[in-house]
Protein backbone atom coordinates (compact mmCIF):
# COMPACT_ATOMS: atom_id res chain seq x y z
CA UNK A 1 0.00 0.00 0.00
CA UNK A 2 1.25 3.44 -0.81
CA UNK A 3 1.90 6.06 1.84
CA UNK A 4 -0.85 8.47 2.76
CA UNK A 5 -1.69 10.23 -0.47
CA UNK A 6 -4.33 12.90 -0.72
CA UNK A 7 -6.67 10.23 -1.92
CA UNK A 8 -6.47 8.07 1.16
CA UNK A 9 -6.60 11.12 3.37
CA UNK A 10 -9.74 12.18 1.59
CA UNK A 11 -11.13 8.68 1.97
CA UNK A 12 -10.36 8.67 5.67
CA UNK A 13 -12.00 12.06 6.10
CA UNK A 14 -15.05 10.80 4.24
CA UNK A 15 -15.21 7.67 6.35
CA UNK A 16 -14.86 9.61 9.58
CA UNK A 17 -17.72 11.81 8.40
CA UNK A 18 -19.87 8.76 7.64
CA UNK A 19 -19.08 7.33 11.04
CA UNK A 20 -20.06 10.59 12.68
CA UNK A 21 -23.36 10.62 10.79
CA UNK A 22 -23.96 7.04 11.82
CA UNK A 23 -23.33 7.75 15.47
CA UNK A 24 -25.06 11.13 15.83
CA UNK A 25 -28.61 9.79 16.15
CA UNK A 26 -27.49 7.50 18.96
CA UNK A 27 -25.75 10.34 20.78
CA UNK A 28 -28.73 12.58 20.32
CA UNK A 29 -30.97 9.89 21.81
CA UNK A 30 -28.60 9.45 24.72
CA UNK A 31 -28.57 13.15 25.53
CA UNK A 32 -32.37 13.23 25.35
CA UNK A 33 -32.62 10.11 27.49
CA UNK A 34 -30.75 11.88 30.27
CA UNK A 35 -33.00 14.94 30.33
CA UNK A 36 -35.64 15.20 33.08
CA UNK A 37 -38.57 12.89 32.37
CA UNK A 38 -41.46 14.53 30.56
CA UNK A 39 -39.42 17.53 29.40
CA UNK A 40 -38.75 18.56 25.80
CA UNK A 41 -34.96 18.56 25.56
CA UNK A 42 -32.81 19.94 22.77
CA UNK A 43 -31.28 17.88 19.99
CA UNK A 44 -27.81 17.37 21.38
CA UNK A 45 -27.13 18.96 24.68
CA UNK A 46 -25.51 17.28 27.63
CA UNK A 47 -27.97 17.87 30.46
CA UNK A 48 -26.69 19.71 33.50
CA UNK A 49 -28.05 17.03 35.74
CA UNK A 50 -28.07 13.71 33.82
CA UNK A 51 -31.06 11.62 34.86
CA UNK A 52 -29.62 8.12 34.70
CA UNK A 53 -32.71 7.08 36.60
CA UNK A 54 -34.66 7.36 33.33
CA UNK A 55 -33.05 4.12 32.26
CA UNK A 56 -34.16 2.41 35.43
CA UNK A 57 -37.67 3.71 34.94
CA UNK A 58 -37.68 2.70 31.28
CA UNK A 59 -36.47 -0.78 32.25
CA UNK A 60 -39.40 -1.06 34.64
CA UNK A 61 -42.16 0.36 32.48
CA UNK A 62 -40.96 -1.51 29.39
CA UNK A 63 -40.67 -4.70 31.49
CA UNK A 64 -37.36 -5.33 29.80
CA UNK A 65 -36.82 -8.63 31.57
CA UNK A 66 -40.06 -10.02 30.18
CA UNK A 67 -39.31 -8.58 26.75
CA UNK A 68 -35.93 -10.24 26.67
CA UNK A 69 -37.53 -13.52 27.63
CA UNK A 70 -40.23 -13.18 24.98
CA UNK A 71 -37.82 -12.28 22.19
CA UNK A 72 -35.50 -15.03 23.33
CA UNK A 73 -38.30 -17.60 23.19
CA UNK A 74 -39.31 -16.49 19.72
CA UNK A 75 -35.73 -16.67 18.48
CA UNK A 76 -35.37 -20.13 20.02
CA UNK A 77 -38.58 -21.19 18.35
CA UNK A 78 -37.64 -19.87 14.93
CA UNK A 79 -33.92 -20.06 14.35
CA UNK A 80 -32.95 -23.69 15.12
CA UNK A 81 -35.92 -25.10 13.23
CA UNK A 82 -35.50 -22.76 10.28
CA UNK A 83 -31.76 -23.44 10.04
CA UNK A 84 -32.26 -27.21 10.24
CA UNK A 85 -35.02 -27.28 7.64
CA UNK A 86 -33.14 -24.96 5.32
CA UNK A 87 -29.95 -26.99 5.64
CA UNK A 88 -31.77 -30.23 4.88
CA UNK A 89 -33.61 -28.79 1.91
CA UNK A 90 -30.51 -27.03 0.63
CA UNK A 91 -28.64 -30.29 0.75
CA UNK A 92 -31.49 -32.16 -0.89
CA UNK A 93 -31.77 -29.65 -3.71
CA UNK A 94 -28.04 -29.43 -4.30
CA UNK A 95 -27.07 -33.07 -4.06
CA UNK A 96 -30.06 -35.31 -4.43
CA UNK A 97 -32.15 -33.93 -7.26
CA UNK A 98 -31.84 -33.80 -11.00
CA UNK A 99 -32.70 -30.91 -13.26
CA UNK A 100 -36.20 -32.30 -13.33
CA UNK A 101 -36.68 -30.68 -9.92
CA UNK A 102 -35.34 -27.28 -10.88
CA UNK A 103 -38.90 -25.97 -10.59
CA UNK A 104 -38.88 -26.81 -6.91
CA UNK A 105 -35.80 -24.72 -6.40
CA UNK A 106 -37.30 -21.92 -8.47
CA UNK A 107 -40.45 -22.09 -6.34
CA UNK A 108 -38.32 -21.40 -3.28
CA UNK A 109 -36.31 -18.65 -4.97
CA UNK A 110 -39.50 -16.95 -6.06
CA UNK A 111 -40.08 -16.03 -2.43
CA UNK A 112 -36.74 -14.22 -2.12
CA UNK A 113 -37.99 -10.80 -3.13
CA UNK A 114 -41.46 -11.22 -1.69
CA UNK A 115 -42.40 -8.28 0.55
CA UNK A 116 -43.97 -9.56 3.77
CA UNK A 117 -46.78 -7.05 3.24
CA UNK A 118 -47.91 -9.11 0.26
CA UNK A 119 -48.98 -12.00 2.50
CA UNK A 120 -49.68 -10.31 5.82
CA UNK A 121 -53.45 -10.04 5.34
CA UNK A 122 -54.09 -13.73 4.55
CA UNK A 123 -51.53 -14.69 7.20
CA UNK A 124 -53.68 -12.88 9.73
CA UNK A 125 -56.78 -14.87 8.82
CA UNK A 126 -54.79 -18.09 8.59
CA UNK A 127 -53.21 -17.65 12.00
CA UNK A 128 -56.56 -16.67 13.43
CA UNK A 129 -58.16 -19.82 12.00
CA UNK A 130 -55.42 -21.83 13.67
CA UNK A 131 -56.34 -20.17 16.96
CA UNK A 132 -52.81 -18.86 17.41
CA UNK A 133 -53.50 -15.13 17.32
CA UNK A 134 -51.82 -13.27 20.19
CA UNK A 135 -49.47 -16.13 20.96
CA UNK A 136 -45.79 -16.34 20.17
CA UNK A 137 -46.56 -19.13 17.70
CA UNK A 138 -48.31 -16.51 15.56
CA UNK A 139 -44.85 -15.08 14.94
CA UNK A 140 -42.79 -18.25 15.10
CA UNK A 141 -44.55 -20.47 12.57
CA UNK A 142 -44.99 -17.91 9.77
CA UNK A 143 -41.42 -16.69 10.20
CA UNK A 144 -40.03 -20.19 9.68
CA UNK A 145 -41.97 -20.36 6.41
CA UNK A 146 -41.00 -16.86 5.35
CA UNK A 147 -37.30 -17.58 5.94
CA UNK A 148 -37.29 -20.69 3.78
CA UNK A 149 -36.56 -18.96 0.45
CA UNK A 150 -33.43 -17.30 1.74
CA UNK A 151 -32.38 -20.21 3.95
CA UNK A 152 -32.76 -22.81 1.24
CA UNK A 153 -31.11 -20.60 -1.35
CA UNK A 154 -28.21 -19.92 1.01
CA UNK A 155 -27.59 -23.54 2.04
CA UNK A 156 -28.02 -24.88 -1.49
CA UNK A 157 -25.38 -22.45 -2.69
CA UNK A 158 -23.06 -23.80 -0.02
CA UNK A 159 -23.69 -27.45 -0.84
CA UNK A 160 -23.21 -26.85 -4.57
CA UNK A 161 -19.65 -25.83 -3.76
CA UNK A 162 -18.91 -29.01 -1.80
CA UNK A 163 -16.90 -31.29 -4.07
CA UNK A 164 -18.92 -34.25 -5.21
CA UNK A 165 -16.32 -36.90 -4.38
CA UNK A 166 -16.67 -36.13 -0.71
CA UNK A 167 -20.22 -37.36 -0.71
CA UNK A 168 -19.23 -40.29 -2.88
CA UNK A 169 -16.54 -41.28 -0.39
CA UNK A 170 -19.02 -41.19 2.43
CA UNK A 171 -21.35 -43.42 0.46
CA UNK A 172 -18.69 -45.94 -0.28
CA UNK A 173 -18.15 -46.19 3.43
CA UNK A 174 -21.70 -47.39 3.64
CA UNK A 175 -23.19 -44.40 5.36
CA UNK A 176 -26.82 -43.77 4.73
CA UNK A 177 -27.76 -40.43 3.35
CA UNK A 178 -28.94 -39.23 6.72
CA UNK A 179 -25.81 -40.12 8.65
CA UNK A 180 -23.70 -38.76 5.82
CA UNK A 181 -25.66 -35.54 5.99
CA UNK A 182 -25.51 -35.34 9.74
CA UNK A 183 -21.90 -36.40 10.40
CA UNK A 184 -20.12 -35.28 7.25
CA UNK A 185 -22.01 -32.48 5.54
CA UNK A 186 -23.33 -30.53 8.50
CA UNK A 187 -19.97 -30.19 10.30
CA UNK A 188 -18.37 -29.08 7.05
CA UNK A 189 -21.13 -26.56 6.49
CA UNK A 190 -20.60 -24.96 9.87
CA UNK A 191 -19.50 -21.52 8.56
CA UNK A 192 -22.51 -21.28 6.26
CA UNK A 193 -24.82 -22.45 9.04
CA UNK A 194 -23.28 -19.98 11.47
CA UNK A 195 -23.86 -17.07 9.10
CA UNK A 196 -27.42 -18.18 8.44
CA UNK A 197 -28.04 -18.45 12.17
CA UNK A 198 -26.76 -14.94 12.76
CA UNK A 199 -28.88 -13.48 9.97
CA UNK A 200 -32.04 -15.25 11.05
CA UNK A 201 -31.44 -14.23 14.65
CA UNK A 202 -31.18 -10.57 13.64
CA UNK A 203 -34.17 -10.67 11.33
CA UNK A 204 -36.31 -12.38 13.94
CA UNK A 205 -35.29 -10.07 16.77
CA UNK A 206 -35.94 -7.03 14.59
CA UNK A 207 -39.14 -8.24 12.94
CA UNK A 208 -41.87 -5.62 13.22
CA UNK A 209 -44.75 -6.17 10.80
CA UNK A 210 -45.74 -9.64 12.05
CA UNK A 211 -45.94 -8.76 15.73
CA UNK A 212 -47.79 -5.53 14.97
CA UNK A 213 -50.48 -7.38 13.06
CA UNK A 214 -50.61 -10.75 14.75
CA UNK A 215 -49.85 -10.12 18.41
CA UNK A 216 -51.37 -7.37 20.52
CA UNK A 217 -49.64 -8.07 23.81
CA UNK A 218 -46.16 -6.48 23.77
CA UNK A 219 -45.02 -9.15 26.20
CA UNK A 220 -45.53 -11.82 23.53
CA UNK A 221 -43.74 -9.89 20.82
CA UNK A 222 -40.26 -9.55 19.39
CA UNK A 223 -38.01 -6.73 20.55
CA UNK A 224 -38.85 -4.54 17.56
CA UNK A 225 -42.57 -5.16 18.00
CA UNK A 226 -42.30 -4.37 21.67
CA UNK A 227 -40.45 -1.18 20.83
CA UNK A 228 -43.35 -0.21 18.59
CA UNK A 229 -45.75 -0.73 21.48
CA UNK A 230 -43.42 1.14 23.80
CA UNK A 231 -43.50 4.08 21.42
CA UNK A 232 -47.30 3.86 21.32
CA UNK A 233 -47.54 4.00 25.09
CA UNK A 234 -44.66 6.27 26.08
CA UNK A 235 -43.99 8.21 22.87
CA UNK A 236 -45.34 11.29 24.63
CA UNK A 237 -42.37 11.40 26.96
CA UNK A 238 -39.26 11.97 24.83
CA UNK A 239 -36.61 11.27 27.50
CA UNK A 240 -38.33 8.07 28.56
CA UNK A 241 -38.88 7.03 24.92
CA UNK A 242 -35.20 7.56 24.11
CA UNK A 243 -34.07 5.74 27.23
CA UNK A 244 -36.36 2.81 26.47
CA UNK A 245 -35.28 2.67 22.83
CA UNK A 246 -31.62 2.61 23.79
CA UNK A 247 -32.29 -0.16 26.31
CA UNK A 248 -34.15 -2.21 23.75
CA UNK A 249 -31.25 -1.75 21.30
CA UNK A 250 -28.64 -2.82 23.77
CA UNK A 251 -28.90 -6.64 23.62
CA UNK A 252 -28.35 -6.89 19.86
CA UNK A 253 -25.64 -4.27 19.91
CA UNK A 254 -23.80 -6.13 22.67
CA UNK A 255 -24.08 -9.43 20.83
CA UNK A 256 -22.99 -7.67 17.66
CA UNK A 257 -19.92 -6.24 19.36
CA UNK A 258 -18.94 -9.65 20.71
CA UNK A 259 -19.39 -11.49 17.41
CA UNK A 260 -18.44 -8.49 15.30
CA UNK A 261 -16.39 -10.38 12.73
CA UNK A 262 -19.00 -13.08 12.13
CA UNK A 263 -21.82 -10.55 11.93
CA UNK A 264 -20.10 -8.38 9.36
CA UNK A 265 -19.19 -11.41 7.28
CA UNK A 266 -22.70 -12.81 7.51
CA UNK A 267 -24.40 -9.52 6.65
CA UNK A 268 -22.15 -8.93 3.65
CA UNK A 269 -22.44 -12.45 2.29
CA UNK A 270 -26.13 -12.39 3.08
CA UNK A 271 -26.55 -9.31 0.94
CA UNK A 272 -24.40 -10.66 -1.90
CA UNK A 273 -26.12 -14.00 -2.07
CA UNK A 274 -29.56 -12.67 -1.25
Amino acid sequence: MKSATTNTLLARALIVLLMAITLLPFLSMLSAALAPAGSYPNGLQWPADPQWGNFVRAFEVAKMDQLLLSSGLIVLGVVPVAVLLATMAGYGLAKLTTDKYKWLYLAFVFGLTLPFEAVITPLYYEVRAMGLLNTRFAIILPLIGLYMPFGVYWMRAHFLNVPQDLSEAAQIDGATRWTEFWYVQVPLARPAIMSLTILLFLWTWNQFLLPVVLVQDPMQRTMAGALGAFQGQWGTDIPLLCAGSLLILTPTVVIFLIFQRQFVAALMQGAVKG
Binding site: M19, T22, A224, L227
Partner: peptide, 14 residues
Protein backbone atom coordinates in the same frame (compact mmCIF):
# COMPACT_ATOMS: atom_id res chain seq x y z
CA UNK B 1 -16.77 -1.75 10.09
CA UNK B 2 -18.25 -1.90 13.57
CA UNK B 3 -19.71 1.58 13.48
CA UNK B 4 -20.97 1.54 9.93
CA UNK B 5 -22.76 -1.75 10.56
CA UNK B 6 -24.60 -0.57 13.66
CA UNK B 7 -27.66 0.64 11.72
CA UNK B 8 -27.93 -2.82 10.15
CA UNK B 9 -28.10 -4.49 13.52
CA UNK B 10 -30.75 -2.36 15.22
CA UNK B 11 -34.45 -2.68 14.40
CA UNK B 12 -35.75 -0.27 11.76
CA UNK B 13 -38.23 0.84 14.40
CA UNK B 14 -35.34 2.13 16.47
Amino acid sequence: RTILFLPQVIPLVA
